[in-house]
Design a protein around this nucleic acid. Structure first.
Ligand SMILES: NC(=O)c1ccc[n+]([C@@H]2O[C@H](COP(=O)([O-])OP(=O)(O)OC[C@H]3O[C@@H](n4cnc5c(N)ncnc54)[C@H](O)[C@@H]3O)[C@@H](O)[C@H]2O)c1
Ligand SMILES: NC(=O)c1ccc[n+]([C@@H]2O[C@H](COP(=O)([O-])OP(=O)(O)OC[C@H]3O[C@@H](n4cnc5c(N)ncnc54)[C@H](O)[C@@H]3O)[C@@H](O)[C@H]2O)c1
Lengths: 251, 251
DNA sequence: CCATCTTTGTGCACGCGTTCACAAAGACAT
DNA sequence: ATGTCTTTGTGAACGCGTGCACAAAGATGG
């Protein structure tokens, strides 16, 4: 999800598989909703349905955290909320900086869902002098010249990059040099970071292209009825690599 | 990535693994950059580095599309751009609607990266009467009463949901009923959709929580030096399920 | 035309993640 | 106390994705 060799073998940390870690926030969200409705306990089946996963998977996920359920009854909602929160590190406060306060950066800054889970927007940073001092979401935008000082003064370890792609790598480098060890990147760029730094990316364009692929596939199948799955509409391996190809062939 | 049982066994479509499909846009982006620099050919090693993946993986990915490389030389950039574009369905135009034109929806509407790859914002839809008729990114916002008509008039098959979570499911239902078969969901909700509809979600909060988990783990390890990976700081299975637990125990 | 050298395409093995299926645990009623 | 019934926790099997390592392909130079 990151760069050339950013991702270590990943989360073999305390034995919790990465796939499980990625689902814990999902469970936590469902549990929080139950908690707000004062539901005392929940079965793996019910909770799995709420989180949109398989109940066996959910039970196995929870088994990595310990034996927090009661057979014949289910899981205590409040207790599980606490355990997952602690496991994810949400019982402490995480100051976050957003770099690049344009359309997207401003939207993120305004997003209430941030603060709700231990994340606090510690600073907004932009390179544009015209932005400096402007209030966005009640926070004054600071100039990127002060990036290093802002990071260290606030003890920031998580940075969000919403700059144009061309400067994302250099912004990333400065963040890392200043002490940031986790980066959430919205710019469509492959970031290189040293070992020990985690990068996750959110790439709207990629998501849409994946949807387009499936969409095209659905449209193709529809035309062919229940025809053989191979060779629907124009297929590369069927009517040969050339035929309707505008581009130049290698040889 | 979607709901209870949204995801079919997935992309065993024409034999292209889902994991490969998810990487094709990455390759395409790197190839487009090379193309703009008029680089004629590229080796798997170079391209893999640019895309941030393993070269063997890249070659295997391309092998699913066909034999488009030339041994001893590499891949023809233009040709590969075309082949991947075609495979992803980007040679055709995909009209997209965005529902919920608030902070995030407006940012997406303003995003130029949309149009660059065959995606065209066909309409912006919001339930707030005060928004109706307002221009966002040069497009007039339409009222959600007309959602069904907008979808069918424009032949939209891809919808983006950026409404508050509480109404996301009902917006989703209306989109699907109107003919949308692919949804990109930004609301932190588990969407239920019938078979044949693809849902992908982008969840900022989850990404941050995953980063927080790793961040906490790094901080813990640092304190313990090269201590046994088990039982770092406060470990659930070590000092027992209770001890410092504020919540109520199940039994 | 032949030799050499580069780079692809893929067979194979391995590890992770998912799912099934069931024994054990415990609640609850009698 | 004992039996029944519900639900957890997990062993085991399976399938997918990854990466190694190498044979084959073909370009290039003599
Ligand atoms: N807007 C979207 O919906 C959207 C969607 C997907 C991806 N993205 C990506 O997110 C990023 C931001 O998009 P946007 O629409 O907000 O762009 P934008 O142009 O509105 O904002 C970019 C901001 O970054 C600032 N900036 C430029 N260089 C900087 C630097 N060196 N240090 C600090 N700040 C700097 C600019 O002053 C500007 O305010 C882009 O990479 C874009 O590709 C945006
Ligand atoms: N802003 C962010 O950075 C951010 C980040 C992550 C997730 N999200 C999620 O994205 C969604 C939108 O966030 P936002 O900050 O833009 O919220 P917002 O309140 O600014 O915008 C929501 C918009 O949806 C419209 N809306 C409400 N009900 C509607 C309906 N039934 N049909 C059509 N439109 C309707 C509202 O009128 C409003 O314009 C939320 O679910 C939020 O949790 C936002």
């Amino acid at each position: 999800m990151a760069t050339g060799r950013t991702h270590r073998p990943a989360t073999r940390s305390r034995g919790i598989p990465e796939a499980t870690v990625a689902r814990l926030p999902l469970y936590l969200r469902a549990l929080t909703a139950l908690s707000e409705r004062s539901v005392p306990t929940v079965s793996s089946e019910e909770l799995a349905a709420a989180a949109g996963v398989n109940s066996a998977k959910l039970r196995k996920d929870f088994s990595y955290l310990g034996s927090y359920g009661t057979r014949g009854v289910g899981y205590d909602v409040e207790y599980l909320v606490y355990q997952i929160s602690r496991e994810l590190g949400l019982t402490q406060d995480w100051p976050v900086v957003i770099v690049g306060i344009g359309n997207l950066g401003a939207a993120l800054a305004n997003y209430g869902g941030f603060a709700s889970r231990g994340f606090r927007v510690a600073a907004l940073i932009d390179a544009d002098p015209a932005m400096t001092g402007r209030q966005v979401a009640g926070i004054a935008v600071q100039h990127s010249d002060d990036l290093e000082k802002i990071i260290s003064d606030n003890g920031v370890s998580i940075g969000v990059i919403t700059t144009p792609p061309g400067v994302a790598q250099q912004v990333c480098d400065r963040l890392v040099a200043a002490g940031v060890t986790s980066i959430l990147n919205f710019a469509p760029t492959v970031l290189s970071v040293p070992d020990g730094v985690d990068v996750r990316k959110v790439d709207l364009s990629i998501e849409l292209q994946i949807l387009a692929f499936h969409e095209q596939r659905k449209a193709g199948e529809e035309h062919e009825g229940t025809a053989p799955p191979v060779a629907a509409h124009q297929d590369s391996s069927e009517q040969g690599p050339d035929g309707d190809v505008p581009a130049v062939m290698p040889a």
